[in-house]
Design a protein around this nucleic acid. Sequence first.
DNA 1: GTGGTCTAGACCACG
DNA 2: GTGGTCTAGACCACA
Lengths: 91, 91, 91, 91
Amino acid sequence: MSNEDKVPEFDPKGPELLYAALADHIAARIAVGELQPNMRLAPERELAEEYGVAYLTVRRAMKELRERGLIVTVHGKGTFIAEQPPGDGGP
Amino acid sequence: MSNEDKVPEFDPKGPELLYAALADHIAARIAVGELQPNMRLAPERELAEEYGVAYLTVRRAMKELRERGLIVTVHGKGTFIAEQPPGDGGP
Amino acid sequence: MSNEDKVPEFDPKGPELLYAALADHIAARIAVGELQPNMRLAPERELAEEYGVAYLTVRRAMKELRERGLIVTVHGKGTFIAEQPPGDGGP
Amino acid sequence: MSNEDKVPEFDPKGPELLYAALADHIAARIAVGELQPNMRLAPERELAEEYGVAYLTVRRAMKELRERGLIVTVHGKGTFIAEQPPGDGGP
DNA sequence: GTGGTCTAGACCACG
DNA sequence: GTGGTCTAGACCACA
């Protein structure tokens, strides 16, 4: 945890749903430390353009990350990387 | 009417719009007698801070209450609790 | 009615509120036939840019026009010029 | 013109009107180069506190400076030091 | 990808 | 020193 590896480009090909792939990609950027706690994420519309996906796809990915506790969003202000909780230890 | 019950803290969670929730909360404070006719309400900017919302949100709530006839606002002086009309009696 | 005169540029100078001036300008474009019934108006954000005003100012102007019955807006689809009611005939 | 002298503290004592004294003080800060073209002036309410004067006094001083062409104010954004025109050369 | 609400903070009008 | 309008730009609900 908290390694400084690089996250590969976002290039979804697998059977995974697009919004899930996007959520995973951002989650990876957080895990790797590229996105640090309390940083503000780019606005949702900007993310949509950067990733070349529809706005709604970004919204779904954000919802996913919110539910995983990785981000916190404040209406009208932006969405921020959460203080990362101790990883659940995984499988 | 004019009971002296307490109004619970402002803690919007429901699906209600924030400004509407705020308007309702203040309306409740009036209904319960915490805010009496002719009293001056705190300045809008102060309300915004107290309630932890943006100024515009307070403005919208005030507009709502004005339309309901619960308050009267005078430009440059402040906003005041209106002489309460006979409640519509409800169901 | 339904003349094809031209509406002058939007250039608010008077004491009128900006959003009211904007509403009037669009109302004039409708009156003159430049904007025909059932046409879709440009998106609100685009109007904001075109007119060089803030988004909220456009929103307020739209609200005004909606209340005057000149436009109809559908959430998620756009705002459309209404079937014009018989003008009140004026003086 | 465009000297780099220092402007003395604001300490009105003379018969001059307070808002005029304030305007002159700010004009001096511009003349001396302490306030450069295109810089944003502190918000009016902040200036009122800093100078220890009423808000209205600041507003009047701003009006004065606007009419002298020393500042440009944009509603909702702030007030900015104007590109200084060639001094009128006055005696 | 639209309309709708919210945040933050500026200048304006009025008493 | 209050209420009122405006700027700028964020997230939200809907089709």
